[in-house]
Design a protein around this nucleic acid. Structure first.
Lengths: 141, 141
DNA sequence: GCCAAATGTAACTGTTATGATTACATTTAC
DNA sequence: GTAAATGTAATCATAACAGTTACATTTGGC
């Protein structure tokens, strides 16, 4: 699993948590514990998808645009890491005579495509607001 | 996803396909399109799990032991690649003050553990015999 | 007993992927 | 005009991965 998915989710939860709903790449980087360049690359994806607005220049940064109750982890996964469940390595070779060696590639691909769909449905169960609520609940204990 | 999973599945399907149910690491490697050393490492796992027997020396190799109708891809996954769905990278830091940065690690871990369980259930739907049947069906068309 | 064939396993190499860092052009608020 | 922020390319270090070589060990057949 790509770490960009984690960065995107963390960023959105953090923006939803801030009253201003705005943070610079530097602030995000220090909260996520990575470097600002990675943040900017990931936030670019979220901008293209319309999840955040960008304000350049002094006092600028990234502003949460979407409704955190409607942004699912599945949609973020599809933006940042789609297909990462499927390994690129394949055994066998379609041109071989053996029915096992020639067909296992497509059989496994089919199985993994099903797993990928199921994985996305699993992630679709969670929204950014769900995660934030859970963290605020835990805080009270 | 670890390629050892693919190697293990391919090996077992191939052994189930052979009338003798036996093959050397060299034969398996040529059918799977990898090298014998990797085969032997993976087959060692299957031996420990009781899925294959090993015969050393001249004319030896690996012999399918379990019933291909009862060996699920899930059980193979648990042997070879358990936990590979979860990324090791974690954003944030449990020691930080921010409720997001300090808690996102465990929240994401929980979500991925659920996904891992679901993934295993998905793989448990398929047996080695299922895959072999499908390949023999396709062959006829 | 000897030899050939096979597994078990460690070590090394090359390639790729990943994340961090640096640098700099561009944009924008004041 | 300057400072602050993003956009993006380039580079570096590290780790992961697969392939390869080598060799000890085991075993079957003569």
């Amino acid at each position: 699993m790509n770490s960009e998915f984690h960065i995107a989710v963390h960023s959105l939860v953090f923006l939803a948590y801030l009253p201003s709903r705005m943070a610079s790449s530097e602030l995000l980087a220090s909260n996520i514990c990575t470097n600002p360049v990675r943040i900017r690359k990931v936030m670019n994806l979220l901008k293209t998808a319309g999840l955040v607005d960008v304000q350049k220049g002094t006092g600028g940064g990234y502003i949460l645009r979407g409704n955190p109750r409607q942004i699912t982890l599945g949609s973020i996964y599809r933006l940042t890491s789609a297909g990462s469940l499927v390994s690129d390595w394949r055994s066998g070779d379609p041109t071989m005579d053996c029915i096992v060696a020639s067909q296992i590639g497509q059989v496994m691909s089919h199985i993994f495509e099903g797993a990928e769909e199921q994985f996305e449905r699993h992630l679709d169960q969670y929204t950014i607001q769900d995660l934030l609520n859970q963290m605020q609940m835990n805080k009270r204990n």
